[in-house]
Simulated scan of single mutants.
Amino acid sequence: MDRLTEMEAFATVVDQGGFTDAARKMGISKSAVSKHISALEARLGTRLLNRTTRRVNPTEIGLAYYDRALRVLNDAGEADALVSSLRSDPAGLLRVSVATDFGVHHLSSVIGPFLDEFPDITLSIVLNNRFVELASEGFDMAIRIGDVDDATLNARKLAETTKRMVASPAYFQKYGRPMRIDDLNEHRLLHYSSQAGNAVWRLTAPSGEKRQVRTAGGLSVNDGQSLLNAAISGLGIAYLPSFLYTNAMAEGLVEDAIPDLPMEVHGIYAVHPQGRFTQPKVRAFMDFLTQRFAGKGPTNW
C-alpha cells in the first residue's frame, strides 16, 4: 500500500478519534481505513493505536509517530501546492517598494510593457527613500540601491550605479572648481533632506581614505531631480547617482566636480523575502526587470 496514504489514514484516525469518522473524513470505507492502519503497523512492527469500544487513542510510540507523520504530510501538501503555483500563470496584486528617484526616472518607463505582457498582474508601486520592512508592511518585493545585508531577503542584481559630485559649468566659472575634498568647505553644497544622515557626504579620497563632508546650509530637497535641476541652474554642487545625472553630463549641463576621486560602484537590486519558493508574480517581475536593465550602469544610463 502507499506509505503516504497509510500515514494519512493513521493521522486522520488520531485526529477524528475513531475509524468511522476518519473514513467519513477521507471519503473511503471504514474497512479501507482499517486495512491502511493494519498495513502500517505490520510494516513498522509495532502497535500505534489502542482500540476501545468507544474511542481509539495513540500509543506512546503512536503519538511520537503521529507528530512526525504530520510533518511529512504537511511537506507533501506544500510540495503539491508549490507545483500547482509554479505551473499557474502570474497573477494577482504585486506590491513593490522603490527608491523614489529610480522609480520615477527608470522603473516608471517599463511598467507599461510589463503589464502588457502580464495582464493578470496588478502593480502597486510605493515610492519612498527608506528601507521598508517587506513582510510586516505587506510588500512582495523592493528595488534597493546599495549593498543588501539583510539575511532574510533574496536579492537579484539588476544594474549598477555610481555617485559623483556635479555642478554646472557656470557654477565652476563663478566659484571655481574644488581640487580636493577639503576644498568643498568653501563651496555651496546641495543635499537630500529626506535621508538619514542627509547632511553628510561620505566620500573616498584618492588615497583610499574614507572622508565625511558636512553639507548643511545652501539648499536641501527631498527629490533627486530637483537637486539636479538646482545644480544645472548653478545653485551649487549636488552629490547624485549616475542614473540621474548621466544625460545631463552628456549634454554638458553638469560636470564632475572632482574627477580624480575614485568611482565607487553600487548595485541596484530587486529583493524579496526568503521563502520555500518564489511566487510567480514576483518571479515574473524580477525576470522582466533583469532583462530590461541588463548592461545598465554604472555610467551607461
Rank of each mutant, 00 (worst) to 15 (best):
M1C: 10
T5S: 12
E8C: 05
F10A: 00
F10T: 00
V13A: 00
D15I: 11
G17E: 06
T20H: 10
A23G: 13
A23H: 01
R24F: 14
I28P: 00
S29M: 05
K30L: 09
V33C: 04
S34M: 10
K35V: 15
A39R: 09
A39P: 03
R43A: 15
L44A: 05
L48Y: 00
L49D: 05
N57A: 09
P58H: 11
I61M: 10
G62K: 03
A64F: 09
Y65N: 00
Y65E: 03
D67L: 15
R71C: 09
G77T: 07
G77N: 12
E78S: 12
A79Q: 13
V83W: 14
S84Y: 07
S84D: 11
S85E: 14
L86D: 13
S88Y: 07
L93K: 06
L94Y: 03
R95N: 06
A99G: 00
T100F: 04
D101L: 04
H106K: 11
L107W: 02
L107G: 02
L107K: 01
S108A: 13
F114W: 06
D116S: 15
P119C: 10
I121P: 02
I125N: 00
N129L: 13
F131H: 07
E133L: 04
L134H: 02
L134P: 00
A135S: 13
G138W: 12
F139W: 01
I143H: 03
I143Q: 01
G146S: 08
D149Y: 07
D150P: 06
D150V: 06
A155F: 02
R156W: 07
A159M: 09
R164P: 01
V166C: 03
S168P: 08
Q173D: 12
P178H: 07
M179Y: 06
D183F: 11
D183G: 09
L184V: 10
N185H: 12
E186N: 15
H187V: 06
L189S: 05
H191M: 07
H191N: 11
N198Q: 13
V200Y: 11
P206R: 08
P206V: 10
P206T: 09
Q212D: 13
T215L: 01
G217A: 13
L219R: 06
Q225C: 04
S226Y: 02
S233T: 10
G234Q: 01
L235Y: 07
L235T: 01
Y239M: 04
S242R: 01
N247W: 07
G252C: 08
D256E: 10
L261I: 08
V265E: 06
V265K: 08
H266N: 06
I268V: 15
A270F: 14
H272Q: 05
H272V: 02
P273D: 04
T278S: 11
P280V: 14
P280I: 13
R283N: 12
A284G: 03
M286T: 06
M286I: 13
D287G: 03
L289E: 00
T290M: 04
R292M: 03
G295L: 07
P298V: 05
P298D: 09
